[in-house]
Design a protein around this nucleic acid. Structure first.
Lengths: 229, 229
DNA sequence: ACCTGAACACCGTTCAAGT
DNA sequence: ACCTGAACACCGTTCAAGT
């Protein structure tokens, strides 16, 4: 029985949860969120649409599994032997780049309570905070603040990014955005108008990392922590 | 002509962008995201499904307008005469409570680049940062860090909250979550296991505000301008 | 146990036709 | 200008029937 199953899984045309998720990711990357269809997926897997439901509960679960896989891969590639601060920046950049490359995975946020992908990030961040000497009762708040920021900003960046063609004029996009902000009502939006010019030479990744650093600085400043380093 | 239009708008059965958005919000609040249908909307407005398309481009625009309206109302109710820090907390809580009451509005994040709702929040936060004396070249980074955190955490909280019935056992939900974390693999998730007990007496709003304070502390601690490159 | 594919119950969106 | 509602081109999901 176990032997039969193992043999079936070795056949390259056999369905499996993993193979379905894999195909879903390819479809999502190639055609965007609207490209993921049970019919399209079935065709790609050379099977019937209903067959997929034997391995996967529904579309929501499939999307969640795909998003988790993306985050999981990103976390697997994170260097973890540098200083805690540097490792945290690495984790953050891992999420940022993963969502940038797979913008559809940002929906991960709105899926059920505490998806596995986010739990992985939370775990890794938490460990670094411990290494950093953040007191125990502040660890959860600190970790969850970082995680919320990381996913929030990464998702925002990804959906902005996917609206203009990848290689092409990112600068043009920022220029249009800056012009729009400059055209806002002066009485209602003085702040946005004042910073609009800055939008034109704007480095997403650097800006994102600066935000991480602000939070890290806040952690170092607010509670007392053991003077190590 | 203008007179005829004004008269038509005064008729209570006349369609208009605002009335459509209003009905959409009611539908979304009552039945959740899946409740918003052009057919259901048409029935509620006592008209044909296609009529709505005269006033609204498509479902995406409608959802975006509804989300923006929710944020707009929340911002209108924010007290603005306290200290900058207190005002920022007020703005943050406004978003938090708005998304908690209307969880479907969290999708706002994933909609097009810089929705009006988020721009309003960014503007208000930015002004307070100016009042706080944050140097000009650090203002955008600071404001956008706060906004990303605020929407990220609020959305996360809202989708978690809507999974358990409102009035009923929130504690039960947290208990189940804590138990699940405690059951995680010890080698793979030591951090999550260690903080799981803390989940049981967890105050979402207090935790959320603590995150805001961490960021504010970080801004106060590193008044030096972030390197650009 | 696993797969097939037709069928069901929906959707968003369009558009000729009305007023 | 604005509204109607039938029609089109899809969906996710189910399920009797197959192997």
């Amino acid at each position: 029985m176990a032997k039969a199953k193992a043999a079936a899984e070795r056949r390259e045309d056999a369905l499996s949860h993993d193979r379905i998720v894999e195909a879903a990711i390819e479809l999502l990357d190639a055609e965007g969120e609207t490209g993921l269809t049970f019919r399209a997926l079935a065709e790609r897997l050379a099977t019937g649409a209903g067959a997929i439901y034997w391995h996967v509960a529904n579309k929501g679960e499939l999307l969640a599994a795909a998003s988790d896989a993306i985050i999981g891969r990103a976390m697997a590639g994170v260097a973890t032997h540098a200083s805690p601060q540097k490792t945290i920046r690495g984790i953050a950049l891992g999420v940022f780049d993963a969502l940038d490359a797979h913008p559809w995975a940002g929906a991960l946020l709105s899926r059920g309570p505490w998806q596995t992908g986010m739990l992985q990030v939370l775990e890794r961040i938490g460990r670094q905070l411990q290494a950093l000497g953040v007191p125990e009762r502040a660890q959860f708040t600190a970790a969850s603040t970082l995680v919320s920021y990381i996913f929030g900003e990464s998702d925002q960046n990804a959906t902005n990014g996917s609206s203009h063609s990848r290689t092409a004029s990112r600068d043009e996009f920022l220029g249009v955005l800056a012009a729009r902000w400059e055209a806002l009502d002066a009485r209602e939006f003085p702040f946005l108008r004042s910073i609009a010019p800055r939008l034109r030479h704007h480095d997403d990744r650097a800006e994102f990392l600066a935000g991480v650093d602000i939070i890290l600085a806040g952690l170092a400043a607010s509670p007392r922590k053991p003077r190590s380093h």
